[in-house]
């Protein structure tokens, strides 16, 4: 019987804090992005702030890239994660589109 081999990813001690922070920032920047986007679209804040939403998306994507680098992911996994970030970019547009369409469709419906 072959000896048991334990494959354990090694993380440098100094990398733990940046890993936890960057992974938190992925979601925090993400929520700022969708939050500002939704508020601008709803007219609650001025469209002047829309670039800030996209800047948060850039910061979110960078955080994900940093996280992936610190975890020493293979290039394929890094590409998949960055691709997922483009998913995050598209999703609020899709949500808003769905909202507007359903609002129009059911505007006068009361139940």
């Amino acid at each position: 019987m072959d000896p048991t081999v334990i494959i354990r990813p090694e993380i440098a001690l100094d990398d733990f804090l940046p890993i936890f922070l960057s992974s938190s920032f992925v979601l925090l920047f993400g929520v700022f992005y969708v939050g500002i986007y939704a508020l601008v679209k709803m007219g609650t804040i001025r469209s002047f702030y829309m670039p800030a939403a996209y800047l948060f998306w850039v910061a979110q994507t960078y955080s994900m890239y940093l996280l992936s680098s610190l975890l020493s992911n293979d290039p394929f996994t890094t590409k998949v994660l960055i691709l997922a970030m483009f998913g995050y970019l598209v999703v609020p547009h899709l949500y808003y589109h769905l909202n507007v369409r359903s609002e129009k469709r059911y505007e006068h419906s009361v139940k």
Binding site: F16, I19, F20, S23, S24, L27, L71, N73
Partner: peptide, 14 residues
């Protein structure tokens, strides 16, 4: 957030 930051296998082992 608290789920995501330890959900990847490289971190989860620790």
């Amino acid at each position: 957030i608290w789920g995501f930051f330890h959900t990847l296998p490289q971190v989860n082992i620790y």
